[in-house]
């Protein structure tokens, strides 16, 4: 793994050290496993290193509490399908087995969840947001998502148009803590 792509800490450790507010710890493990198939760790960091599950948990708790139920049902259905198809828990399946279950969700053919494809689309959307969001929202830890694709974050501006050149700037993240952000967003009544 190239240096710039090093994650700030191992994903397991992050799961251990932080409490979840919207998801149960069992659900968090399922969500993390699924997100890790959507944007896997390869020779570069993926959803696990970016802390996508923390982005999702915070987003559900603080912004979209109505979607907690979707995750609750979705996780239960992933688990059920894993057991029915492969006789084991989703988190214990081999990656290609997890992919098969997730594909069935994507296509809407998974059993026991009417809007399985909708849940997959939501999970994918949140996973990608968690990869590339400002770290203050809980994901993109160590700016791994931005470093991966070559986005230098919130530069004040660019002196150079960088025509056909790699942008060799250290990425910059927003410094406003989440609570302040929430206050800004928080004209929700």
């Amino acid at each position: 793994m190239p240096d710039v792509c090093k994650a700030p800490a191992a994903a397991d450790a992050l799961l251990e050290e932080e409490r979840f507010q919207a998801l149960s710890s069992g659900e968090a493990k399922i969500v993390e496993a699924a997100a890790s198939r959507i944007f896997p760790t390869t020779d570069t960091p993926g959803a696990a290193e970016a802390g996508v599950v923390h982005y999702i948990d915070r987003t559900l708790k603080e912004i979209y509490p109505k979607q907690i139920a979707s995750y609750r049902e979705g996780c239960a259905a992933l688990e059920r399908n894993a057991k029915e198809t492969f006789g084991r828990q989703f988190t214990e399946l081999a990656p290609d087995q997890q992919d098969k279950i997730l594909s069935a969700f994507e296509k809407g053919t998974a059993s026991g969840l009417a809007d399985a494809s909708e849940f997959f689309a939501l999970l994918r959307k949140h996973t990608m947001e968690g990869m590339f969001c400002e770290p203050m929202y809980g994901g993109n830890r160590g700016l791994v998502g931005w470093r991966l694709v070559g986005f230098p974050g919130q530069q004040f501006g660019y002196e150079d148009p960088y025509i056909n050149r790699v942008v060799d700037l250290e990425p910059i993240a927003h410094e406003m803590p989440f609570s302040q952000q929430e206050a800004l967003d928080g004209r929700k009544s």
Partner: peptide, 23 residues
């Protein structure tokens, strides 16, 4: 666009998740 605005711009036939999508 930042990556959040462009992650869905994907050629037809390219999977929208998984290792190939990430690549």
């Amino acid at each position: 666009g930042t990556p959040i605005e462009r992650y869905n711009i994907v050629p037809r036939g390219m999977p929208r998740w998984g290792a190939d999508y990430k690549k």
